[in-house]
């Protein structure tokens, strides 16, 4: 399966907010009500289509547990997008967002697209964090905001795809150096650099890509 770009995502947030379920819903389109704790960092991938381009999303699902924080931190590096998840039924997960955001900003490239996600929107009756609060937090920190439900699959697809769109937009604006893998973006194998990338960089980097594809 060829792809034009590979974007690396990382999903972060407190334990039990539904990070793994979001990933499972996005990659497998199913919901597992009983989900064991994530120990370490897991991994999922799916192809999406943005503007007619095949884009592979490589998603790192991290453990939210405080004790794994040091392990998961090393995965921030090399992520182009982050899904910062909180649970709308548990206010403390919302309160911890700032520390997560600090972590993310500190350990990732400055261009990383962060999407704030209020999960478990299906549990409206147990809501503890207002939608407006989420929106306000996102506005304040320059994030994209969305409420999702991994159980009903509501907005799950959109959350991942909107993030990808935003990254793609940034690439086209030239904000990302697509050839620095530390940015979490990889050009697909056998993929020539098209006009979507700035013409000034294309000349220089085409050689790199060829040597890359030649040896892998």
């Amino acid at each position: 399966m060829t792809y034009a770009y590979l974007f690396k995502y990382i999903i972060i947030g407190d334990t039990g907010v539904g990070k793994s379920c979001l990933l499972l819903q996005f990659t497998d389109k199913r919901f597992q009500p009983v989900h064991d704790l994530t120990i370490g960092v897991e991994f999922g991938a799916r192809m999406v289509n943005i503007d007619g381009k095949q884009i592979k999303l490589q998603i790192w699902d991290t453990a939210g547990q405080e004790s794994f924080r040091s392990i998961t931190r090393s995965y921030y590096r090399g992520a182009a997008g982050a899904l910062l998840v909180y649970d709308i039924t548990r206010r403390e997960t919302f309160n911890h967002l700032t520390s997560w955001l600090e972590d993310a900003r500190q350990h990732s490239s400055s261009n990383m697209v962060i999407m704030l996600i209020g999960n478990k929107s299906d549990l409206e009756s147990r809501r503890d964090v207002k939608r407006e609060e989420g929106e306000a937090f996102a506005r304040e920190h320059g994030l994209i905001f969305m409420e999702t439900s991994a159980k009903t699959a509501c907005n799950v697809e959109e959350a991942f795809i909107n993030t990808a769109k935003e990254i793609y937009r940034k690439i086209q604006q030239g904000l990302f150096d697509v050839h620095n893998e530390a940015n979490g973006i990889k050009i697909g194998p056998q993929q020539c650099i098209s006009s979507s990338v700035g013409p000034s960089t294309s000349q220089r980097n085409s050689g790199d890509v060829e040597s890359n594809s030649g040896c892998c």
Binding site: F43, W60, S67, F68, I71, C216
Partner: peptide
């Protein structure tokens, strides 16, 4: 993977 780190398990 030969070119990058994959998942990890905190055992």
């Amino acid at each position: 993977q030969p070119d990058e780190r994959g998942p990890c398990f905190a055992f």
